[in-house]
Amino acid sequence: MASSADDVRKSIRSYLMVFGALGVLTIVTVAASWLKVSVALGIFIALVIASVKGSLVASVFMHLLHEKATLFWVLIISAFFFLLLILIPVMQSYETAHLIDQVTQ
């Protein structure tokens, strides 16, 4: 945790650098969406850039880099359950495919 005044002054520099990086990445993500790539690759690129931006915000603005293990455990647990939630559509499309198979056979 940035506690002393010097630490805070130092981190202000990193805030501004992250600000610049986020701006550039926003431009990159818009530009990438104009590329003629397959839908899957397009989704992949956009999500990778968004994840990079998201981790910048979390690690620098939200000081996650300076936190201790307890918080990481909480976040790991919720990240795991988050992924589980995201699995629901995958399961659903599996179910749908399964039903369609049955009907067409």
């Binding site: 589980l84 399961m91 599996y94 179910e95 039903l99």
Partner: peptide, 18 residues
């Protein structure tokens, strides 16, 4: 308890693997 929810949904036409 987070990983068992779909046992309430066996009869929704869920595939056998699920």
């Amino acid at each position: 308890s987070f990983v068992v929810w779909a046992h309430h949904m066996f009869l929704t036409g869920m595939g056998t693997k699920m």
